Computed example of a mutant assay.
Amino acid sequence: MLDDQDRRLLRQLQADPSLTTAALAARAGVSAPVAARRLEKLKAAGILRGVHRVIDWRALGYAVEVSLRITLDKTDPGAFDAFTAAARKVPEVTEIQTFLGRVDVRLSVIARDMAHWQQIYRARILALPHIAEIEALMRIATIKTDPGLPI
């Protein structure tokens, strides 16, 4: 599906998403028109879905991240949809993931400090519908974060 030119463009784009098409082309060893055409082709194929800026929430004063593993009460057929709709409305929830198995949903939640976390947990998390079981894991350190792919 991808040839060498596509891979070179994607590697350079992963390394620095802020590059202009001309700079990206130069680093990938292709002409700017070729780079532009190939990037459009990658977008049309759904491989490139956009360029994003990443905000460092720690730099904004959020020092606590908690991962919540949640098992839902499955006696209500609408439990999953009701839960996820409500969880999306909690501003401190940065990620919602679903799973097959004992754990149904994982939420990533950020807070400024432990007092703020306690407030979020009591007022917003415990108020979410259809929770049967909840387990909180507090992040201590990030060992590796690499959103890039081995292209």
Rank of each mutant, 00 (worst) to 15 (best):
V66D: 02
L9F: 13
M1L: 11
L2D: 02
L107Y: 05
A127E: 15
A111G: 03
Y121L: 03
T94K: 09
E95Y: 04
Q12S: 12
L128S: 07
H52K: 07
I70R: 04
H116L: 02
L126D: 12
I70L: 11
L137D: 15
A44D: 13
G29F: 10
D104Y: 15
A136P: 12
A63P: 01
R38Y: 12
R88M: 04
A136K: 07
A141Q: 08
P150L: 06
E92Y: 02
D6V: 08
T71F: 06
A127N: 12
A111I: 07
P129V: 00
S18A: 10
M1Q: 11
K74D: 12
G148E: 14
G78Q: 11
A36F: 14
R11T: 04
I70S: 05
R37Q: 11
L39S: 10
T75V: 12
T98G: 02
K41C: 05
P147Y: 01
I125D: 02
R53T: 14
A136N: 09
P77S: 04
I110K: 01
R124T: 10
D56C: 00
T20E: 09
G50I: 10
G46N: 03
V34L: 09
L128H: 03
R49L: 08
T75D: 07
A26D: 15
R69F: 15
R37A: 09
P91L: 03
D76G: 01
T75M: 09
R88N: 01
T21I: 03
L72F: 15
W117D: 06
M114R: 08
P77E: 04
Q14H: 11
D76E: 08
A82S: 09
I140M: 06
R27D: 03
W57Y: 12
A32G: 10
L60K: 00
A23W: 11
R112A: 08
T145E: 13
A111W: 14
E92N: 06
D73V: 15
A25Q: 07
L137H: 15
L19Q: 05
R106L: 11
A127K: 02
G46I: 03
R106A: 13
L149N: 10
G46D: 01
L149P: 01
A141T: 13
Q5T: 15
D76I: 02
P77A: 00
L126T: 15
A87Y: 01
A25M: 08
D3I: 14
